[in-house]
Design a protein around this nucleic acid. Structure first.
Lengths: 192, 192
DNA sequence: GCAGGATGTCTAGCGTTGCTAGAGTGTCGT
DNA sequence: ACGACACTCTAGCAACGCTAGACATCCTGC
């Protein structure tokens, strides 16, 4: 009674993840407007209703993709931070890594930070991956700064604004590196 | 042959504007997802196809709302800037006015800066209202600063990030004023 | 070994969306 | 008065997210 059920649950979990990765790949390839339940079901090689046996709806699939993305972002930022232990350089590296992440995976980034979501931010039920990503910014700041969180929120806002305005063609994408230098130079020194 | 045609064109222009304002009001009241061509047509008291005799599609209506918004934003920012002629204070005031605008008209703001658009930014065909709004930021910066444009882009990115992350509940909306103070303090002094 | 129940999947379809073709109406210039 | 034109509406298409109910498949208890 046990082994078979285990196999089934394993297969089910695999399919669960397959839905997420196929949704993400389709979104990265053709944008989220191309991710319809029909097309997604076809890629997964099941019919539409199975999607709803795994997720409450399309929004939940997008959220699942986003949460995967939070984990990857946290790892990406952490990697950048640890590569350059000097705090000032570290902040610069983390910020650059953030922008890299956003430009290289625009659809994933949208799912995480643009599309409407019911994922809780800065809250008790915040997914730990998300908190981890945010903390990478905080870790670059002097521990004795009482306003680190606020500082980190502002940096994040700036990077997010740059990422999203550049992605939608509202500011020229070329200037990103120069803007980044400017931001870090201007913000890096923690106020007394 | 003339007076009648003129009346018709006048009425048509009125209806054109009516579509835009009704779309905007409906969006402000219930969000853009509630703005369907059917509901909009009902509010305008015409059938759906007349919408398409004025606009190429729903996107074009959103764009028209956005362009109206650019004009209002420019006026709002200009008003804030002129109220406080000292440059440092002026920047602060303009930034605060920007955030005010975003929080008080969230749907309009979304049409302008979040929803996909084919309006050209930083381009020869950029609507003058949009350029005017951007220039309000530039005007707060020292004219001898060769990198004013870049500076303004960064400020705009920061404010946009704050506005949009706060609107979607990704950063706590309470801290906006404090974050604003921090940003202006940190960025206001033009680098040499 | 085999019925019976539970589990899982699919087909078919509902209501809504953006958008459009073609019919119908009314108005205008001659 | 009438033909031509400009305009608006009804009706419908394809695609959307989502779901009910039929069907098949597999495990369980006798």
């Amino acid at each position: 009674m046990s082994a078979i059920k285990e196999r089934r649950e394993r297969e089910r979990a695999q399919r669960h993840q397959l839905i997420i990765t196929e949704a993400r790949e389709l979104a990265e390839a053709e944008g989220w407007e191309a991710v319809t339940t029909r097309r997604l079901a076809e890629r997964v090689e099941y019919s539409q209703p199975v999607l709803y046996s795994h997720f409450s709806g399309k929004d939940a699939i997008v959220s699942a993709v986003a949460i995967d993305g939070f984990g990857e972002l946290a790892a990406h930022l952490r990697c950048a931070r640890l590569a350059d232990p000097e705090p000032r350089q570290a902040l610069h590296a983390v910020c650059r890594a953030y922008l890299e992440f956003a430009t290289e995976r625009p659809a994933l980034y949208q799912a995480m930070f643009v599309m409407p979501t019911d994922v809780k931010f800065a809250h008790a039920e915040t997914p730990p991956q998300l908190r981890a990503a945010f903390d990478e910014f905080v870790s670059c700041l002097r521990p004795d700064n009482a306003r680190r969180e606020l500082f980190a929120e502002v940096i994040w806002s700036t990077l997010h604004g740059m990422a999203v305005l550049s992605d939608s063609g509202r500011i020229p994408p070329d200037g990103q590196e120069e803007r980044l230098d400017f931001v870090v130079t201007q913000l890096a020194d923690t106020p007394s």
